[in-house]
Design a protein around this nucleic acid. Structure first.
Lengths: 260, 260
DNA sequence: GCTTGACAAATAATCGATGATTTTTCAAAA
DNA sequence: TTTTGAAAAATCATCGATTATTTGTCAAGC
């Protein structure tokens, strides 16, 4: 007996979860597009908060390293303490939030060494997962890869339009996750997803546009083509280069901003 | 102004956090041995609960796949709902607990495919971390490895005495973590630690003693010797075999118990 | 001026109660 | 007998208030 939009008769009246002044208004347009599926796993306030907080951190709206004041966060997200704490606790696993007893939560700081670890772990883990996917992935997975590539190529990335940036980020993330989704290893996929999140935070914070000497579309296409052709070495080498180049670019931008 | 045992004047009177009938009494003797260091990171009830719940799950006291009834857990751990929920939320990251909106928390189930994934991921990434450790690890790390090996060799593993089993588990875990602790990659170490936890749950649940055709002490010694000698291929091969053998044994025991 | 320690303010952590959802029960209808 | 659906019970989720800890302030002592 679950269909359509949930009743959600909580204490907040109609204007539930509206956000603070000017910022943090998230994912309110997207879910209107698919109204009958809007309740997959985001029924509770705590779960909604996990998504909203994650997005706020990855997008850079919540500054890296900054302390998360519970009272203020409570107000700007218009929620009460219990779901907020629970959501933050879950975000620790993502590496996006840190916690210390009696000192509360803070947004994980960024650093050069952290970025370098993320990059090298992505190189290792994502190519491993890609290889496994090519080994055991089925035809449906291949189709998903091609579809994800197509969507990515169609999505334009115009820095002047924030909504296209959001959209590009979503399909880009989806592309990388689809590539490795054939491997049938939930724990590995979960870890790769976490690393991708962390990486995206750096990209969205420090990289407004790609470096001139890259054609990222071609890189994506080569990876995808090699993948569906099951050319393991070729696909993995392209993917590794792709990850490595982004890491190098990011490292330069961090250095420019004086981040150690 | 933090020394010695914390005041901890909470509402529970003297008999705080005592557990339910007959089971789940954990880590009460150990902390008396090191009274002046008992408060590293476990001040709050929620954080204490994380440790206690993790240990209860890994040791098998909380049955795999079973639902965690919040009311009952609240009572048997003698805590209130807020820290309990927060602790469980944090444990999701460890892969020890699963969660579903409005259906609550449950202990992650065990399965053959889960075990196989854990084993193969350990083979890949523990050897990767070991190689990195040998590449960049310093002398202090080498010393730590030899000390961990020594402690492991000294610890006896008598199935008839549960407290020695606990002790052996602790030093065994410490040995494996120390091996890779030289790599200077917190995210990688964290992942390996998680996999080790998951693996230990299988071992402690399904393997009361090691198979007769193994000399685990020798295996550990070979790994450690190869490691401090920085013989990368040798050490990694020994470690991989070690992990693989345990995986094979476990798989057999799971099959015997009819677990798919 | 610098340190120290008590006090106050800010913040984090916990609790008990209440609201919301899921699960169970059970009688009526098919 | 099986199915259905409403009511009851059990359980989960959230809230507001209370308690505990940390941080900030500032005057007294050195």
């Amino acid at each position: 007996m679950k269909f359509g939009i949930r009743k959600q008769r909580n204490h907040l009246g109609g204007c539930r979860l509206q956000s603070g002044p000017g910022s943090l208004i998230l994912e309110s347009g997207a879910e209107a597009a698919t109204p009958s599926f809007s309740d997959d796993g985001k029924n509770t306030i705590a779960s909604q908060l996990v998504s909203r907080l994650r997005e706020a951190i990855i997008s850079g709206q919540l500054e890296a390293g900054s302390k998360i004041n519970l009272d203020r966060a409570k107000q700007s997200f218009n929620v009460s303490l219990s779901p907020l704490r629970e959501a933050l606790a879950r975000l620790i696993s993502d590496g996006l939030v840190e916690f210390e007893d009696n000192r509360g939560y803070r947004v994980s700081p960024v650093s050069l060494s952290n970025l370098e670890e993320i990059t090298s772990l992505r190189e290792e883990f994502e190519t491993y997962a890609l290889r496994e996917s090519m080994r055991v992935g089925d035809v449906e997975w291949e189709g998903n890869v091609m579809r994800a590539l197509h969507r990515l190529n169609r999505a334009e990335r115009d820095a002047s339009k924030p909504e296209t940036l959001e959209q590009w980020e979503a399909v880009h993330r989806e592309f990388h996750l689809t590539l490795i989704s054939g491997c049938r290893r939930p724990l590995l996929l979960n870890f790769c997803k976490t690393m991708l999140n962390l990486n995206d935070r750096y990209r969205r914070t420090f990289l407004t546009r790609t470096s001139g000497d890259r054609n990222v579309s071609v890189e994506h296409s080569e990876i995808a083509q090699g993948t569906v052709a099951r050319d393991m070495d070729y696909a993995c080498d392209r993917l590794r280069e792709h990850i490595h180049r982004t890491g190098t670019n990011l490292r330069r931008h961090l250095a420019e901003k004086g981040i150690a």
